[in-house]
Write a protein that binds this DNA or RNA. Structure first.
Lengths: 167, 167
DNA sequence: CGAAACTTTCAATACTTATTGAAAATTCAT
DNA sequence: ATGAATTTTCAATAAGTATTGAAAGTTTCG
């Protein structure tokens, strides 16, 4: 397989994966592009490589900056901005986990806490409801704890521990 | 807070969470409804409770059956089908992990393997590309292993191990 | 300051995905 | 086999999301 094809295919696949990680397709593709690029790229170059419009490039670059997984770079003698990706996959995963925790887990935890002290009228429905909420809350809290550990963990420590788990 | 409100809110919140787990909103809401219901529900009842059409209910119920997180139930003396959810949150999480592994991780692993033996023309771009692919592949494989362990694990063992990790 | 270089915004529009509801297909008791 | 009960399908359409591109805004430098 030739390099250009391979690059194309990787960007495509990364686009799909990123999508299921909660990014959108273009966001994930820009990210993939910056991942495999040895130098920082300008908006122009991103537009070119992915055949997307200026507006699209701009919006998604900013979203990536928001998520904290790419950063701005100044190039001496150049007026325009360049962007580079965090290349450490581990750091990237942590960042994504952090964002998703904030965006997804926290809201449901809030609801579960609220809903937990519902007034039970003694009906079977209400009893079942309470029971389920309690279990969900327990699970969500444990997951939250696990995620937090992951987010704060050092790479080597984490994988060592995980490897032990997997034995 | 009253029970009916609480139920409403939980279904809503679960809908959102489910969505970010890769289900769609209605799928997740049907699931939430079945989770909190002490008895199995018919398509009619699902339509009623969530104010959705027959077709929509049918399609999403089937998708949930496909994912293996709800099941059919026969009720003596009734001709129509009833559905109930797996209520064990843990089993549910495992099932979702399994599906997502199949749908998301496996395809990217395939691409990474393909793309891994690209012919490097010696350019800096190609070298960087190879390096990044290698790292991604390594990460994806480790994640895959971890997921597999999770999918196969017993609940108590898993949380015990995780709790140790979190110390 | 003035104007070229560059970035951001956003209304219009294209594209994608979800939903409806009625018709077709299936199931099942008689 | 018949037909009532039930489930499934699917074309039409609604709703949601992403993308464009040109205009407005900002920055930088002579």
């Amino acid at each position: 397989m030739k390099y250009t094809e391979a690059k194309e295919e990787l960007i495509q696949a990364w686009g799909n994966l990123g999508y299921s990680w909660g990014l959108n397709k273009t966001m994930a593709q820009i990210h993939a592009l910056l991942m495999v690029s040895p130098k920082a790229l300008s908006t122009e170059e991103i537009m070119q490589e992915l055949s997307i419009s200026r507006g699209n490039a701009n919006m998604n670059v900013r979203a990536l900056l928001d998520w904290g997984i790419i950063s701005r770079v100044s190039v001496a003698g150049e007026r325009k901005e360049f962007f580079k990706s965090e290349k450490d996959v581990w750091a990237l995963a942590r960042q994504v986990a952090k964002e998703r925790r904030k965006r997804e887990l926290e809201p449901i935890l809030k609801v579960l806490k609220e809903v937990n002290d519902v007034q039970t009228d003694g009906s079977e429905e209400a009893k079942e409801f309470k029971k389920v909420v309690k279990e969900l809350k327990n699970f969500a809290e444990k997951s939250d704890g696990l995620l937090e550990t992951f987010i704060k963990a050092e790479e080597s420590w984490f994988w060592n521990t995980v490897l032990k788990m997997m034995k």
